[in-house]
């Protein structure tokens, strides 16, 4: 299973990066979204996989009983998801603003002051 998730994460990184290299603003942002999902999946998988055992203490117990999924990467990823969302929303609106002002979504054209 790790093999499959490693490939999935690699695909997310590769496609995200490829889209970030494109010239359209919208593609840049989609790429950013893929890349951040890939990074989250990377952290999650690297922390080790455990099936269906959420790190939640049962009602009748006072501590977690093994096996349970490692809560530390989960906490990291949870933060990263939310931050990633904030960044994505911000860059989306930024791109929208640039597009409105420059009248084009071609990054090269915006850079050369055209539009």
């Amino acid at each position: 299973m790790e093999l499959i998730l490693a490939i999935a994460s690699g695909v997310l990184f590769g496609t995200g990066f490829y889209l970030m290299l494109r010239r359209r603003l919208a593609q840049l942002i989609i790429g950013l979204g893929l890349l951040s999902n890939g990074a989250n999946l990377l952290i999650f998988t690297a922390g080790g996989l455990t099936r269906a055992r959420a790190p939640v203490i049962a009602e009748d117990a006072s501590l977690l009983v093994r096996p349970f999924a490692d809560p530390v990467p989960q906490a990291l990823v949870l933060t990263a998801i939310v931050i990633g969302f904030g960044v994505l929303a911000f860059s989306l609106v930024l791109a929208h603003g640039i597009h409105t002002m420059a009248g084009t979504d071609d990054i090269d054209e915006i850079r050369s002051g055209g539009g």
Partner: peptide, 26 residues
């Protein structure tokens, strides 16, 4: 790039650090 990420991720699993922090929180 994607390939190297996949390879690294796969082999990181072989060198997992023990559950020290997780145990503390648990």
């Amino acid at each position: 790039f994607g390939g190297s990420i996949a390879v690294v991720l796969l082999f990181v699993g072989a060198n997992l650090t023990p559950f020290r922090l997780a145990n503390y929180f648990a």
